[in-house]
Write a protein that binds this DNA or RNA. Structure first.
Lengths: 144, 144
DNA sequence: GGTCATTTTGTTACAGTATCACAAATATTC
DNA sequence: GAATATTTGTGATACTGTAACAAAATGACC
């Protein structure tokens, strides 16, 4: 069970699975859905915890750091498409330092993703593959 | 050249690459980065176009529809991790109808992604793979 | 060219998402 | 139990995105 494992792991790591944090994990587990931070916040507030956004954001951040939860990504930024063939599914290489975005071709991944979706009887409509990290130049600078 | 191709394609499709839309594409092309909608808006406003968010959002939406730009995804929702081993890189199967999130294992993709990153001399730190679509139940309901 | 329907642009107003800065409370260490 | 560090809570505010509607531009038709 996930909660039990979380308790053990936090004890082992010397970090604290405090009541808010624990309750936040429970909320995510109970819903089985992707939840917005404000949705989590409402439930925390209903249980007597703080009512302000940072309460939820901090607990969620902790869970993500510890690997107990994931941050599901959604829309926020735009980049021109450099190879505008119809229906291409690019991989984005996003540099977190200079914010340059490179596109690479995802066709090698496509087959694997289709298989995976088929095994779960899932019908994919939009595929998102992003690598966040450092581009060649910035990682050279970081090393210098 | 991307702009020229966009002109031809829009003419062929019978849609209009109006001045704002064209300028928006130029702005994205000039920056070579992922730009937020408000950043684009500032530049549009400086060029004498509208100053309100919808101006940028609409132009960007058009470009994405036509395949001239991509929407880069960012943080918005959270889900509990069901297999909290350290360093696992899950694929998310997100149902756009019921919002359930399933995790599948991405290890099959990992190799391909590493290769791809290596070829671009890119150092990945965080990998995001998401499939947005319909889960088995919702797609059955949609068919009914 | 003038009229009509359609599309596009612009604005106001507002909803949703996220962070900063600081105070109060709680644990941990010695 | 006093000192320190961590965590929680609050108010204020910034950033991101959308709804609704009016004005302007475009295209089709006569």
């Amino acid at each position: 069970m996930v909660l039990r494992r979380a308790e053990e792991q936090t004890r082992a790591e010397g970090v604290r699975l405090t009541p808010v944090r624990r309750r936040t994990l429970e909320i995510l587990l109970e819903s089985h859905r992707a939840m917005g931070a404000y949705e989590v916040l409402e439930k925390l507030a209903a249980d007597g915890y703080g009512k302000q956004p940072p309460v939820a954001y901090r607990a969620l951040e902790f869970l993500v750091e510890q690997g107990f939860a994931h941050r599901i990504q959604r829309l926020n930024a735009y980049a021109a498409c450099l190879s505008p063939e119809r229906n291409h599914a690019p991989v984005f290489l996003i540099c977190r330092s200079c914010e340059q975005v490179a596109e690479a071709d995802a066709s090698a991944l496509r087959g694997a993703l289709q298989d995976l979706a088929a095994r779960s009887e899932f019908t994919p409509e939009r595929i998102t593959v992003e690598l966040l990290g450092l581009c060649a130049r910035c990682s050279a600078e970081a090393a210098a």
